[in-house]
Design a protein around this nucleic acid. Structure first.
Lengths: 164, 164
DNA sequence: GAAAAAATGTTATACTATAACATTACACCG
DNA sequence: CGGTGTAATGTTATAGTATAACATTTTTTC
């Protein structure tokens, strides 16, 4: 039994990404319906754009895309949509990149751990129970109550390594 | 034997901060001398300002302080000094806050883990071998070569908790 | 269909960081 | 010592990230 769940894999462009995005949007709609949140056309479209690739997406890149089909779009438009999606647990913010990625497992607890490949730019998301438990233990030893975890490992993914 | 070293503690203003800063500057000078880097007056002053408190400091706050005594100071002045200090391992950047803190242990390897108290604003720095090892193991299982770790836990420190 | 709430439009601005090129200070060598 | 190359700083401009504040429109609810 492996305690480490990979919520979002490195893909190296070998998967059926259309299906991947469709699944994410379906899950998003279900999550919002269940929680009484409104996945409006703008929010839905921003989510779709975030899922455009497995690389993190910048807010102003989203804005550029959005403006092609929605002339009124401004920074606030994008940031409001992103904040909604963050709160709804549908996207994550990568602090070390000022960028956003789709959540691999909407609605199942808080953010996990991110592996960021500096070569291909893709991001994988983990939810490792053992790691989470160890962090909780360490913080507890110091009397520190953790509210939010930012864990972002930068490096080279298996696909991009000489061996892989 | 505890594998967790606290490189920089939460202080709740109860320590002799002047001595704390003096120690940091002394260590910085020694580190630079040993490595043939120049701790110029500007760099030294920026480091001193970073150590002004145990809270993370913003670049433009540093700029404001610096300009009082150094009229020529501009954003580039501060960012150059910060980049030098980061490279020299004398300060760390807190990604989730866009802010900087003095390094509790100059010259001994890369950044550790940070605990950020949302109540008092202070930051503690850890270097936990067990945690580092577990992360290394997990990444390795996935064939991911870690180059850089960002680990920032936000929450409430012992000093600020009802119990503490 | 009116009132309240939620979402979006719109304009302006704050905050974070780097680019590019000019000038000055310093280190090293002869 | 003086010249020369490098490192550091000065200076101006601009790119990139994000929020504030208030107006308007859309949706919900009763």
């Amino acid at each position: 039994m492996d305690k480490m769940r990979v919520l979002r894999e490195f893909t190296a462009a070998r998967h059926e990404h259309v299906a991947c995005v469709r699944a994410a949007l379906g899950a998003a709609e279900a999550t919002c319906r269940r929680r009484g949140r409104r996945l409006t056309p703008i929010r839905r479209r921003v989510l779709e754009l975030v899922w455009g690739g497995h690389e993190p997406v910048k807010a102003y890149d989203l804005l550029q895309h959005l403006q092609r089909e929605h002339k009124a779009a401004a920074p606030a438009t994008v940031y409001r949509a992103l904040n909604f999606l963050l709160q709804a647990g549908l996207v994550h913010r990568i602090e070390s990149l000022n960028a956003y990625v789709g959540c691999g497992r909407p609605g199942h607890g808080d953010a996990g751990q991110f592996l960021i490949c500096e070569h291909c730019g893709e991001v994988a998301e983990l939810d490792d129970a053992e790691l989470a438990a160890l962090i909780a233990t360490k913080a507890d030893e110091l009397g520190f109550a953790v509210a939010n975890k930012v864990i972002e490992l930068q490096g080279t993914c298996a696909e991009c390594r000489p061996s892989g």
